[in-house]
């Protein structure tokens, strides 16, 4: 009894070999002349001041959070979609309720300006 993921396992092995082979070949072929100027951080030609950190913006986090919520919703809708033809008519109502509640979530986020980038 072979898992249907067996091929994926084999492909992972070969797919990992590709970048290793590419990088290995490049390592053999390319010049290696490091100097401190080359190895400094790129800042359009200027020197960096201070450590590398970014102003905390809740905005980025909210987008990721919206994504989690809608991703989970989509995951629950998938078994419904696969079984849809065999399900009775009220399955449509159930799913509409499900989607409506989550559309409500989207509307809430929209109205509360959570989706604004600026």
């Amino acid at each position: 009894m072979l898992s249907e993921f067996a091929f994926v396992g084999v492909l992972i092995v070969f797919a990992s070999l590709l970048p290793i082979a590419g990088l290995g070949f490049a390592w053999l072929v390319r010049p290696k002349k490091p100097n401190p100027i080359k190895k400094s951080t790129y800042e359009c030609g200027l020197e960096t001041i201070g450590g590398t950190w970014v102003q905390f913006r809740a905005q980025y986090y909210i987008f990721a959070l919206m994504f989690v919520v809608f991703d989970v919703e989509a995951v629950f809708l998938l078994p419904w979609a696969v079984a849809y033809d065999q399900l009775p008519a009220y399955a449509l109502i159930e799913a509409v309720i499900f989607i409506a509640i989550l559309a409500l979530a989207l509307v809430y986020a929209w109205r509360k300006d959570a989706l604004r980038w600026s």
Binding site: L11, I12, F14, A15, S16, L18, P19, I20, L23, F25, A26, W27, V29, R30, P31, K32, K33, P34, P36, K38, K39, S40, T41, Y42
Partner: peptide
Amino acid sequence: LTKEDITPAKADRIVFNLAPMLAVVAAV
């Protein structure tokens, strides 16, 4: 292939090297 590979001095070497490999593996 023949361009010099410059790793910034303060970069996190392991993760810096892993990221492009992960990108290619995911694509394949």
